[in-house]
């Protein structure tokens, strides 16, 4: 696939402004301290893989990036827009950020085509015909145009996840978040979803991917981030991360999942 250039940037944003800036972010669920002062900058076009043991706060962190969760202190700035209680800002950030969930979260009462087209109509007031054309275009990109008329319940898990990716892409996001996109899939379907993600990465999409697929991390990540107990313990390019982890906790984690 040909490496395409990134979409034009808004004029008021400097080259140096990161796509996502996470600064000293703390997050509590009730009394439970889920994120303990997380710092992370993600450059435009960068692919970051986040890994770590269960309950370490990976989902919480990326869900804060599109405000599915709110943080209580620190700053999260996405494409120059800070996430606060301000609803305008939240809307603006969600315009730029697409998300893919572990359990797909397709709308079961809508056809595959409508799953992709209806959000455009509802969120962007795109005319119906145009929305459908966009939907077909992206269904083709994830290579399932022939399933457009079916309902999600009639597709395999891998197909559903590819529809979910197409649905997110229809909104033309600048940043994509993936929360364990392959961990609910049967092994034989993991590859088709990862291939779709690799293609997306090759086109220059900024991606934050929570996954335990270390092969994917090696292949496409610019950086691997390891989280444990609500903190970022290590952040390094994949070669260094896998070959020479700095922290003992990272080494313990890697020894468990890399065979």
């Amino acid at each position: 696939m040909i490496e395409t250039s990134q979409p034009p940037r808004a004029a008021d944003m400097t080259q140096a402004e990161p796509a996502v800036r996470i600064e000293a972010v703390h997050k509590w669920y009730g009394a439970y301290h889920a994120l303990k002062g997380v710092n992370l900058d993600i450059r435009r076009g960068e692919r970051v893989v986040v890994c770590g043991p269960s309950g370490s706060g990976k989902s919480t962190l990326i869900r804060c990036v599109n405000r599915l969760e709110d943080h209580q202190s620190g700053h999260i700035v996405v494409n120059g827009v800070e996430l606060t209680g301000n609803l305008r800002n939240i809307d603006a950030v969600r315009r730029d950020v697409g998300m893919v969930f572990q359990h797909f979260n397709l709308f079961p009462h809508l056809s595959v085509l409508d799953n992709c087209a209806v959000p455009l109509v509802l969120a962007r007031r795109t005319p119906r015909a145009e929305a459908e054309a966009t939907a077909r275009h992206f269904l083709e990109r994830v290579r399932i145009p022939e399933q457009a008329h079916k309902f999600p319940g009639q597709l395999s898990g891998g197909q559903q996840q590819r529809v979910a990716i197409a649905r997110a892409l229809c909104m033309q996001p600048k940043i994509m978040l993936f929360d364990e996109p392959t961990s609910a899939l049967d092994p034989e379907m993991v590859k088709e979803v990862l291939d779709t993600m690799v293609a997306l990465a090759e086109e220059g999409m900024t991606m934050i991917v929570v996954t335990h697929e270390m092969g994917f991390a090696r292949r496409v990540a610019d950086r691997v981030v390891f989280m444990d107990q609500g903190e970022i313990v290590e952040s390094a390019p994949p070669e260094m991360f896998f070959a020479n982890p700095a922290s003992e906790r990272t080494r313990a984690f890697l020894s468990q999942i890399v065979h």
């Binding site: 599915l68 959000p119 509802l122 997110a168």
Partner: peptide
């Protein structure tokens, strides 16, 4: 499932339309 509402929010669909 809560995921339905989350997916709609992540896509930027307004509350009442969701």
């Amino acid at each position: 499932p809560a995921g339905q509402d989350e997916a709609a929010r992540a896509l930027g669909i307004p509350y009442w339309k969701t």
